[in-house]
Nucleic acid binder design. Structure first.
Lengths: 229, 229
DNA sequence: ATAAAGGGATAACGTTGTGTTAACCTTAAA
DNA sequence: TTTAAGGTTAACACAACGTTATCCCTTTAT
């Protein structure tokens, strides 16, 4: 299955639990966000619009049940998967959890492996929608370049590039490690017939380096540039 | 929710359990079929093509796990909901259950009420998926677009759009995040042959932004527009 | 038929940000 | 050290987009 890139928000007031779950979900390829209380969970949910939210129930500043109720009233989160993960294992709590609109209810303690199974099962059931097939998305390390959405992400932070900058970056990133000659770049990005000055490429390269905030483009003096981490 | 008429097949070798579960599911409006061993479960599944199958694992003449595996290899049952209901509550059994393709794994003993909650939760999750497919209603964040009623809702407030505005918005929202080139927009909304001025799209975009009162349409200079929250 | 209302396109002008260049500075190789 | 190649910066021109008012046309009610 293509679990890559699905966003999961975990809310729990115990840092240890947050860390353990986060580690295991990330190892599986999920992108994980955390919150340490109810209010923060709501806030982060609106920020990142996760595909799945794992909620503790006994949390400060709004219980998981309250968070779930609030989210379910909002159209944006009507279809968001929600799992309760809690020490409350009595029947009435569980039934109430499902009545609130949860998709699963898991008792603590639970092994990370088992939680993963349940998470995967949920995504398997729901997740036929956005299969990444032959779209032109490039993923190099922590950099994601999506030419369809015209978006560049670095460590899950969206970076806004101008047209030429984007095209230039996309060209370089399409073959990481390979050196592109200045002439190649001119032909591919500007076109065979367009004539621009010597410094034009440099300036664009600089802006990309600056905006991405990484040294991902290496200069090969006298030859050209290459994308490399 | 429309639980009525959904078909559930229960397979268990203990007649008492069959009876109790059957009673409770029927009380909720489900149509229930039963099987007392693995082979019978397979046979009845093919007969009635149930929406959900509840499988015991320790059964004569094929275990629940075997039944699940066999069903999942057949296209007809690829999307059939399957719940394991078993006394085997060790971790490895549960993980194996999910690996086999189950949608939930429930330990015996369980109260009928709680089982019902889980069954309902599963149908609720799957039901939405089928709903969304048939009619052309788009739901992106807190924006709901209904092409049948010709209505746009933002935070549950109805917004009235003109025809062209609506078609333009619907096109963009049909693939949130994706950038549509100006030419694509012209072809889709205006038609291949119609020729309109340069500023026409902009003006409609502006009206949409103004009426919706949100910044949900992003301009990608030199490229096009995209719907994004 | 006629008036009223609103949709849709366009022109004219305002605004923004991109792309490019020039001028100067830094670095690395011979 | 020398020097060629690239880095950096700011400034500018212009293309692309935003905004507004206006006109024409279709629709709807009287």
């Amino acid at each position: 299955m293509d679990t890559k890139g699905k966003k999961i928000l975990i809310a729990d007031d115990e840092p240890d639990i947050l860390e353990i779950i986060q580690y295991n979900l990330q190892a599986e390829g999920y992108v994980v966000y955390t919150a340490k209380d109810g209010d923060e969970a709501l806030q982060r949910a609106k920020q990142v619009n996760p595909d799945l939210i794992i909620l503790d129930i006994m949390m400060p500043r709004k219980t998981g049940t309250e968070v779930c109720s609030i989210l379910r009233t909002q159209p944006a989160f009507k279809d968001t998967l929600i799992i309760f993960l809690t020490a409350l294992n009595d029947e009435s709590s569980q039934v109430r959890g499902f009545d609130t609109g949860a998709d699963d209810y898991v008792n603590k303690p639970i092994s990370p492996k088992l939680l993963l199974s349940r998470v995967n099962a949920l995504f398997r059931r729901v997740g036929k929608k956005e299969e990444a097939g032959s779209n032109g998305i490039l993923t190099v390390g922590n950099v994601v370049i999506d030419p369809v959405k015209y978006i560049v992400e670095v460590d899950n932070n969206e970076v806004s590039l101008a047209k030429k900058e984007f095209e230039l970056l996309y060209l370089l990133a399409s073959r990481p490690g390979r050196v592109f000659l200045r002439n190649e770049i001119l032909n591919q990005v500007w076109g065979n017939d367009v004539i621009v000055g010597d410094r034009t490429i440099d300036v664009h390269i600089r802006k990309i380096r600056q905006k991405l905030g990484l040294d991902c483009i290496t200069t090969v003096k006298g030859v050209g540039y290459k994308f490399d981490l």
